[in-house]
Structures are given as C-alpha cells and as structure tokens.
Computed example of a mutant assay.
Amino acid sequence: MSGQMKHIVESIQDVAQRHPRAIATTVLLSVVTPQLTHWFVNNYRSFLALGRAGIPSNIIGWSIAMMAKPFGRETLSTDMYDRDSNKDFWLDDHSIPERRGDRPRTGWHFLPHRQTNRLPSQDVKERLKAIFGKHAAANPDLLEIAVSPHERMHEAMVIKSSRPSPHKVADHAMREVAHYHPEIDYSLHVTLSPQDCKLVIERGWGERHPLSGTVALPKEYLLVYAPRDDEELDVVERILVATIGYVAGSKEVN
C-alpha cells in the first residue's frame, strides 16, 4: 500500500472511530434510499391508476392522498349500525343475496376510493350507466343531476334543490344520493340507511369509505362494488333505489 493510500485509510478509520453513529446512518441510507425511491415511484403510479376524483391526478393530489392515509378507518365492521336508533330498512332482506367470491381489492390510497380488480365488462358498464340515468329521470320530484359535491367532477344524483333534507345524514352527505365512477371501475358511492348499510356490508356488496363516520362523511356513506353480470346489476339497482328512498326521504321511488 502506498504512503498516500495508507494515509487515506487511516484518516477514514479515525473518522469512523470518532463518529460511529454518523457513519452507520450514512451506510444505512445508502442501502435504504434506493428501496424507498422505488416504493414512492410505485406508490405514485398506483395513485394515478385510480383515476381522477376530487383531488388533482398529479403530484399535488398524491401528496394530499398520502397525508390523508393516517386518518383512514377500517371499512367492514357493522356494530355501529346495530347501535343506531334508526332501525328502518329500505332494502328487502330477501332481495340481497350473498355476493359470490371474495371482495375486490381497493386501492392503498382512499382518495380516490376505488376498487382495483374484478372490473366489469364494457357491456356491463354501459348497462349500469343506463340504470343510473333511468332512475334519475324517473324521480324528478326527488332528484336532480349535478356535479358530485364529494368528487367534484362526476355526475351525481342529489336531492332536488327545492326539496328539504329529510335528516341530518343527508345534510352530512352534502345532499348527494349516489354517483358512480365512469373512468376506471364503475363502482358507486351511495348513502344508505344504517340497517341497509349493515346488510350490504355483511353480504359482501360494499364497504364504508375509510373516512365514513368522521366529520368528512357520515358512517352511512358506502362504496358499492362494481357489478359483473346480470344478477349483480339487479342487486346494485335495488341498492340504488334504496339509496334514493333513504336520502330523499321517500318510500315512493321509481
């Protein structure tokens, strides 16, 4: 070893002995940083894959979604509905069978709240769109179509502006009845009565939004999974009709 190289090695050893924690941290970062970078890049891509919603589909929106993540709650328990004093149903228990198969996955981010697999065919998408439009048009005394106050870009059913909100849950939901997500998955966000929420969740047709039950959203605000065939379209249509009845406060829904 040359004298110059020996001097460099001795100098490094001296620094290491005097600053062991700094050296250990530097080595750790050199190993971990590429892995973190890879995770953040993949996480950002998965956020973009969820499509547009109420936050920008860019680095700013991703930052908002990341900051919201710690505030998310679990989505499948139903004890809160058992404790609710409202025991009314808008759904017939016998009309909601157990949903076949496992629940679809939902995104790691919940802004936007979307499912990421088991997506419908183009034909089913078009038929869901038609069902949504049919019921919106058939209930002009209860509903009107407006931009979703939650997603702020998709069309939504909302309580007709001349009609008073029938209960505090409707106010908490910003008078929105339902909307579906036309860009990616064709799942729906709906607001159901507490007992209908329990039925839909327990039979596998949906889950709460992770912010449901907070100041942001009522506990009755659910994601209903996208239908995949005729049978599931029928069930989702029944859920949609129940949603209209509950939020608008009417048992007479067309």
Rank of each mutant, 00 (worst) to 15 (best):
K160M: 03
D102N: 15
G206A: 04
I96R: 10
V15S: 09
A170Y: 06
V200Y: 10
D93M: 08
L50V: 00
A242F: 08
Y44D: 14
R152Y: 02
F71T: 14
E176D: 15
D82N: 13
V190M: 03
G3F: 03
A130L: 10
P34H: 10
H135Q: 03
D141I: 00
E126S: 12
E237I: 03
K6W: 03
T75I: 13
P227H: 09
W108S: 12
D102T: 13
H172G: 06
F71M: 08
W39M: 14
M174H: 06
Y180H: 06
H113C: 15
E126G: 11
A65Q: 07
I131M: 11
K129M: 08
F71Q: 07
V236F: 03
V147Q: 13
Q122V: 04
T37N: 09
T37K: 11
A68K: 06
R83K: 15
T25R: 09
P104N: 02
V247A: 01
R152D: 07
V9F: 05
H7S: 14
D93I: 02
Y221D: 00
K6Y: 04
E207I: 02
Y225A: 12
P218S: 10
H150G: 05
S57Q: 15
F71I: 06
P112T: 05
A24R: 08
P70W: 02
A49Y: 08
H167F: 04
P70L: 06
D171E: 15
N43F: 00
S11A: 15
E98A: 12
W39T: 11
P56I: 10
R238Q: 09
L199G: 10
A137M: 04
D230W: 05
T26S: 15
P112Y: 01
S165W: 05
S212L: 04
T243Y: 04
D196V: 02
A173C: 01
D82Y: 12
S121D: 10
N42P: 00
A24G: 09
S165E: 14
L48Y: 03
L188G: 01
L48T: 07
A24S: 07
